[in-house]
Design a protein around this nucleic acid. Structure first.
Lengths: 344, 344
DNA sequence: TTGTAGGCGTTATCAA
DNA sequence: TTGATAACGCCTACAA
């Protein structure tokens, strides 16, 4: 109402052309509610009115204020996604189908990187909750107690991905990292390798994979399985860790299980530099089946996880919960596959 | 006020524990505004009051509603980021510092993939504008006319990245793709290559790089520079396009400029498969300086763009504009560097 | 230091 | 088919 009697002609500070439904309605000769209805359900408005409203929208360049809509309807049409790192292809490639699936239903993605610190994750979760997302994706199943409490209290659908647990906050879509480590151990055993070592970098899940591998292979072979560790999982680290295994830990050959394909490629490079043949002197297994796995020479034997399917399933599980029902299952194990190539 | 006289004890449908500042205030014996103040500026509230409010917040698990806050204050504390693809490391690696820089100032990122279609981008921009972001990042400088119109009308800070233009919507942080193509041509000429070809996949910017390369090298050498193209820029495409150049386009040797490092790696692989030596029979130049560039054998000569600096500069430019002032410059050219390794 | 009043721009609920 | 009215939960004056 107090629009025409605004006495400040020049530089009306905030939102100079903040067109509202009120303004559109005035121009179209209808009330604000009718504009709202026209946008949310055109069938409830007469064709003539609809036309006038459309016209007014086009002329004014009106874009509805979704913040106000969210406040009134208690539906933000936003979904939060929290991943450790978006430059890691592993997370980015689940995010893409996740986001696409939700976008097709009108949701937008509020994204944050959490790093690997549970406390940082908790702070991020709180920031996201304040935006009242209609659902939340978390990476991993280990969170600060406060995180769990906030999430349960917020009564919002949550999906934890890229790992498995019997006690999810709400929904869980992932696979068992320990099982994937044991699968590599089984493979090594069946392929006849007598000795093995591990190379590990990165998060707690990577460590769980390697620990499971080392324990399983160690038990069945009755040998010690040395595991070299570092924090950053790049090519240089892979090279350095193989050097460490050979030069300092007395590793003389066998199968080397790596916690990522990139590390494994580093191992291949270091092996070549030392004149070691792969898989003759040294067999290598990676994790992730990134594109490079099939491209390197020799091709990398590795564990594949269908990340696209995982992201999509996570989105669908959340949508099912948003739609009111319970999804068919709370726990979805998407599993993994050992892809055998030439490196082991 | 109608909280105590609510007659529905069981399953109060929506937001069952929607704690508000009102409720926190009641518990702490103060009004709603005081709670608001306590949160936004503790120094304006007495220590005792502050303590009671803190207590009430802890007990209730109150999380402020940022939607309501945004509506009232006209500041959403969200920044939109639109990139063609998040699985492309090129975009992801500028997004990470961009997001980090903004996060430190309290902003959150609303992310969307736009693909490479301007119309899709326009629709996404509209969806984002409805959320009233305090700033927007767009990838590239070519947009649908409607996009430009909406953005100008919305009166929101905009930064276009990963390209350059004399006529930005608002701010621009990037580099000249044509110049990078010419830089490769200059290098090829100075290194003594007499013939050259191009391999191109992906977006319009990739095509501009290759076109500039082909024109520049073609002119100075007086030779024809064949360019093989495809849409998807993976390893297989690199292999296939080199095969096309050799088998169908009569390319017999010289320097091959590729629009990405991944394509270039494909070329290296195909060359090895054909028994061609690099750089002896065939020299290869990539683009992007991804990690693989230094890791492949031979090391890949390529163009490096400081993507982290770019993302950070984009964030800082937007923050400067948000803070009311004009940034020191509207156009920031972050440039590029030719990294010479063994492949050319 | 604290409180009251009046929006912010929608959606939900009735009533016409 | 349309409109009036009351939320939604917070912030910005202004007053005490």
């Amino acid at each position: 109402m107090s629009q025409s009697d605004d006495p400040t002609p020049i530089s009306r500070k905030r939102n100079p052309r903040g067109v509202t439904m009120e303004a559109v309605g005035r121009m179209a000769g209808v009330s604000q509610v009718t504009v709202s209805r026209a946008l949310s359900d055109p069938s409830k408005v007469s064709p003539e009115t609809m036309a006038r409203i459309r016209e007014a929208i086009a002329v004014t360049g009106f874009v509805p204020n979704a913040l106000a809509g969210a406040l009134a309807s208690r539906k933000s049409m936003m979904v939060s996604a929290l991943v450790p790192s978006i430059t890691n292809i592993v997370y980015a490639s689940m995010l893409a189908p996740f986001s696409e699936e939700l976008k097709s239903r009108g949701y937008q993605i509020l994204l944050s990187e959490t790093g690997f610190d549970p406390e940082e994750e908790a702070a991020t979760v709180e920031a996201h909750l304040s935006r009242r997302p209609d659902a939340i994706l978390l990476t991993g199943v280990h969170h600060a107690p406060r995180t769990r409490r906030m999430l349960l209290g917020a009564d919002v659908p949550v999906v934890e991905v890229w790992d498995m647990t019997e006690t999810p906050i709400d929904l869980c879509v992932g696979f068992s990292h320990a099982a994937s480590g044991r699968a590599v151990a089984d493979f090594a055993r069946e392929a006849g390798y007598r000795r093995a070592a591990g190379i590990c970098a990165g998060d707690e899940r990577a460590q769980r994979r390697l620990a499971a591998f080392a324990e399983s292979f160690g038990q069945s072979s009755g040998t010690e399985v040395p595991v070299a560790r570092t924090t950053r999982g790049n090519l240089a680290a892979g090279r350095a860790l193989l050097a460490e295994l050979i030069d300092e830990r007395g590793f003389t050959g066998g199968l080397v299980a790596c916690s990522s394909d990139v590390l494994a490629q580093g191992v291949l490079i270091e092996a070549a530099a030392r004149g070691l043949s792969v898989p003759g002197d040294l067999a290598v297994v990676g994790f992730g089946d990134q594109e490079l796995a099939a491209a390197v020479e020799p091709g990398l034997t590795t564990i594949r996880v269908n990340r696209e399917a995982l992201g999509r399933a996570a989105a669908q599980a959340l949508l099912a919960r948003i739609d009111g029902g319970n999804p068919s299952q709370d726990l979805i194990d998407v599993g993994f596959t050992l892809i055998r190539r030439a490196s082991a």
